[in-house]
């Protein structure tokens, strides 16, 4: 399937889904005025990809510096989706990047991984 690459805007993250390589990443800030415009395409692509990802090795990098509540809800939905497909046999690793001095972003990562039981979740501090 086609890779998904969307440049970052002031209020939305850069999307880089390299499906062939099994490397997905979201990077930047996320506080869009219309969450569905930003996350709609992301979820659609993700759903299609994960549906056929059984047995594959997939790494998902989250490198976010700021997000609002809609984005947090979307992320939680996304994590649930990832955990389900990991349960179904996709070998999924999530890397949650946070700046070394950003305790808030680190704690968000800790919160989000609480409900994940099949995904390998790494908290990665970035200097």
């Amino acid at each position: 399937m086609d890779n998904l690459k969307i440049a970052a805007t002031e209020r939305s993250p850069a999307v880089d889904f390299d499906f062939a390589a099994g490397r997905l990443s979201l990077k930047g800030e996320s506080y869009p005025e219309d969450a569905s415009a930003v996350f709609g395409p992301i979820f659609a692509a993700l759903e299609a990809f994960l549906g056929a990802a059984r047995g594959r090795e997939v790494t998902f990098d989250f490198d976010l510096t700021y997000f609002n509540s809609s984005s947090a809800k979307a992320l939680m939905n996304m994590f649930q989706m990832l955990d389900q497909s990991a349960d179904a046999g996709c070998r999924l690793t999530v890397n949650w990047f946070y700046a070394a001095d950003d305790d808030t972003m680190k704690e968000f990562g800790e919160d989000f991984c609480e409900d994940l039981s099949h995904v390998t979740f790494n908290l990665v501090s970035v200097e």
Partner: peptide
Amino acid sequence: MSSFNLFDAE
């Protein structure tokens, strides 16, 4: 493609 809904699951 159905329109994206944050509370789809709920």
